[in-house]
């Protein structure tokens, strides 16, 4: 059922920009249209590109914010989230806590 919804109407998670749009809903309470427009402006892509896995794979690679096929020496996990917080101009709870732990 998860797979059906994902194919039928989901944004695609980190295959695309789904995780980034989700972060705007969660951190700023944005509705879907506003959240997509915000992320598209930060990524300098069109709104329709946000759910395109080919375009977004390249954008994510350029910005080094984590890709599904994680190659050596690129951002993964928490380090990708450091970059996402900066890129979107938002606070990410676990990133802030990580910073506190290494002070």
């Amino acid at each position: 059922m998860h797979i059906t919804h994902s194919i039928a109407s989901g944004m695609g998670g980190m295959r695309t920009a789904g995780d980034l749009v989700a972060r705007m809903q969660m951190s700023r309470g944005m509705k879907i249209k506003e959240a997509k427009e915000y992320v598209a402006s930060k990524l300098k892509v069109s709104v329709s590109d946000l759910a395109d896995p080919v375009v977004m794979n390249e954008v994510r690679e350029d910005l080094d914010i984590g890709r599904v096929n994680a190659l050596p020496r690129v951002a993964k996990g928490i380090d990708a989230k450091f970059r996402i917080a900066e890129l979107l101009g938002i606070e990410i709870n676990c990133v802030n806590q990580f910073k506190d732990r290494i002070k």
């Binding site: 998860h2 059906t4 109407s9 944004m11 998670g13 809903q25 959240a35 329709s48 759910a51």
Partner: peptide, 14 residues
Amino acid sequence: SVGVEKGKEVILSY
């Protein structure tokens, strides 16, 4: 199987 029009995708939570 059917799906939304391109550009109308939404966020999935679980």
